[in-house]
Design a protein around this nucleic acid. Structure first.
Length: 658
RNA sequence: GCUGCCGUAGCUCAGUGGUAGAGCACUCCCUUGGUAAGGGAGAGGUCGACAGUUCAAUCCUGUCCGGCAGCACCA
């Protein structure tokens, strides 16, 4: 006999070898009907598994949040079966659950089309209706290899070979079809339900390596109920309206065009946001003991060779010949021994040049050099994405030159500054990653050991949660990455802190220590926003274009109802502007409804509407974006309130005190 | 860069093997109207580029360029 425990503390006795199915059926028919899987001592398992003696088991119903992952995983299996049934000879590879859905990668000569997706969905519905049960089998390695080899499933054979020796090879069968899978699964394909949809097809490299063949990846999502699926699809549709590229055009913030691919043309309104952000960060850095500098855009290749960028980063650099091309021939020509300059892709080597001027003492450390560094990187065309991924960007960059024993304090100070800035911007959900040594790197492993440990320890000391991103570090050192999400949930790295023992060595940076000896400083590369472009894009998407008052390109529009109020409106705008408010006037020959609509669509946070009455009384009718009411206030009061509201977050306290 | 899809007016999109349309935006006229679209008129496009097929190409085919999604790469 075995003893089974339940979450409420109750226990029951069963015969050896009893499965979860038997247990649940012994409790109640209705519970058995609703249950699709179980947790055995907290681990999600097949309901058909034997229950070990003394285990605590908890039943997972289909509408349980924990079941969502199972629904999606099972849906991926059904997707694979459907594809192989429709197009025999298509090879299957892997099909995991991801955030908001699942995908399955296939290898097939003929790529899938959007119409194929609809056909596959139909087939999936059919398979689900057939309702085959999931059954688990454990195979030997040879059996699995032989089976998939015979079927011509080369990718599966590779997967079998990749499973560690100490792990069993599990096969899940669903009717005629089967797949290599770790599990767990629900009772049968019927439990997947019909609240699923296939969303897109895309190419993806086998095992995430661009040297490998490209597979066809089919994405889909599934929910417990149709209502949840509909709600999700509606939410995504709404989120797409917050796309910063769309809002940037609608709000006349910026544009991009072919002739300067990946470089931003900031329009007057967009550049207000840009300038406000720059001014804000400048104040914050100044307050945190940074010194701002400006370094050259175009730098002789000699420096990039020395810094290691030429060796490790060349394919991303824009290189310029230091010579006027000859136009004698058909094509412009340059001589073979020409000297090259490169547009800086990063600011660090230039900052070391500033550090290296004169002799630095340990008393100068930590020295924090900041720059709004305009960097150019030749990004792959497929990587470009509005303001999020550009070829010309401006980083809120800084390099902290310090001693090894100052790393922890500097890391802590940086994390606190970053938290404060992100809080000011309204971001609370920040994902932190510790990125470790990449394959292409400079510096000895011993140096990397010290750097990775130093950064990890310093971060851990601040008490923040973080994940490890294996092999994602910069070529000169490990880094912390601070990620924010865009409107549709894509994650973008914004802030970063990178620990670097390599660059000071390569560029011969040194300081005089207390004992008179020459020592190498450590360099911390860091940015809070990352790039102004990307951060502004995230801000636009998170605010759906309705920027907070201090960032709003136009803070108030004074709109007239009748032309008799034009003169009064002009007087108000003059006073608002004199008070530092970004105010515009609208005296056009249009109805007030039209003006309200247009400025609402333009996301202007406040409108002062004036007619004959207001002009006579010296008041304004204040209308706020998104509200339908309005309040009539004396102009002075309205202006003073607006001024307080328009203060940047770091100046708010001072503005309120004044 | 890779895979797939897409490319018609400033924007959103119809459409056809015989060189083009709508709505909004724009310009002008009428309207002075009290909080999310008042009415009328006008202007605007070598249908992404280049080849090919055809009597004839915006439409069919190919190549290139660009955009979008994902992958790879990255702030």
């Amino acid at each position: 006999m075995i003893t089974v425990r339940f979450p409420d503390g109750a226990t029951r006795e069963y015969a050896m070898g009893t499965t979860g199915t038997t247990v649940v059926e012994s409790i109640s028919k209705s519970l058995a009907k609703a249950t699709v899987a179980m947790r055995v001592d907290g681990v999600l398992s097949d309901l058909s598994d034997e229950v070990p003696d003394g285990a605590t088991i908890e039943f997972v119903k289909r509408d349980d949040p924990a079941a969502l992952e199972l629904i999606r995983h099972d849906a991926a299996h059904v997707l694979a079966e459907a594809v192989q049934e429709l197009w025999p000879g298509t090879q299957v590879t892997i099909g995991p659950v991801i955030e908001n859905g699942f995908y399955y990668d296939f290898y097939r000569e003929q790529p899938f089309s959007e119409e194929d997706l609809r056909a596959i969905e139909k087939k999936m519905a059919e398979i689900i209706d057939r309702g085959a049960a999931f059954t688990k089998e454990v195979w030997s390695r040879d059996q699995a290899r032989a089976f998939f080899e015979t079927k011509g499933e080369a990718f599966k054979v590779e997967l079998v070979d990749a499973i560690p020796e100490d792990q069993s090879i599990r096969i899940y069968r669903q009717g005629q079809w089967l797949d290599l899978c770790r599990g767990p699964h629900m009772r049968s394909v019927k439990d997947v339900g019909q609240a699923f949809t296939l969303t897109k097809v895309a190419g993806a490299y086998w095992r995430g390596d661009s040297n490998n063949p490209v597979l066809s990846r089919i994405y889909g999502t599934a929910f417990a109920t149709r209502e949840q699926l509909e709600a999700y699809l509606t939410m995504m549709e709404e989120a797409e309206k917050r796309d910063h590229r769309k809002l940037g055009r609608e709000m006349d913030l910026f544009h991009l065009q072919e002739e300067a691919q990946g470089s931003v043309f900031w329009h007057p309104k967009g550049f207000v946001i840009y300038n406000q952000m720059e001014a804000y960060i400048r104040r914050r850095l100044d307050g945190a003991g940074y010194k701002e500098i400006k370094t050259p855009q175009l730098v002789d290749n000699k420096l990039w060779v020395k810094s290691g960028h030429w060796g490790k980063f060349r394919e991303n650099m824009f290189v310029v010949p230091d010579e006027i091309p000859s136009t004698e021939g058909e094509q412009p020509e340059i001589s073979s021994d020409v000297n090259f300059l490169a547009l800086k892709p990063m600011n660090c080597p230039a900052h070391v040049q500033v550090f290296n001027q004169g002799i630095k003492s340990y008393r100068d450390l930590p020295l924090r050099l900041a720059e709004f560094g305009c960097c150019h990187r030749n990004e792959a065309h497929g990587a470009l994405h509005g303001l999020m991924r550009v070829r010309q960007m401006t980083q809120d960059d800084a390099h902290i030159f310090c001693r090894e024993d100052q790393i922890q304090a500097e890391t802590e100070a940086f994390c606190n500054l970053l938290d404060s800035v992100y809080a000011d911007m309204g971001f609370s959900e920040v994902k932190i990653l510790l990125a470790t040594r990449p394959d292409t790197r400079a510096g000895d492993d011993a140096v990397w050991d010290v750097a990775e440990k130093g950064l990890g320890d310093a971060l851990a000391a601040t008490g923040r949660k973080f994940e490890i991103a294996e092999g994602e570090g910069a070529f000169y050192g490990p880094k912390l990455e601070f990620h924010l999400k865009d409107a549709i949930g894509r994650s973008w790295q914004c802030g970063t802190l990178q620990l670097d023992f390599v660059m000071p060595e390569r560029l011969d940076a040194s300081y005089v220590a207390e004992d008179g000896s020459r020592q190498r400083p450590v360099m911390l590369h860091r940015a809070i926003l990352g790039s102004l472009e990307r951060f502004i894009a995230i801000l636009i998407e998170n605010h759906a274009g309705k920027m907070p008052m201090w960032l709003a390109p136009v803070q108030v529009v004074v709109a007239t109802i009748v032309s008799e109020a034009d003169e009064y409106a002009q007087k108000l705008v003059d006073q608002l502007k004199a008070a530092g408010i970004r105010a515009e006037i609208d005296t056009r020959n249009e109805k007030i409804n039209y003006k309200v609509r247009e400025h609402s669509v333009g996301k202007v946070p406040v409108m002062f509407v004036v007619g004959k009455r207001e002009a006579e009384e010296g008041t304004v009718s204040v209308r706020r974006l998104g509200s339908d009411g309005q309040a009539v206030l004396p102009f002075r009061d309205a202006m003073v309130a607006l001024m307080a509201e328009a203060a940047a977050p770091d100046l708010k306290a001072a503005a309120q005190a004044a």
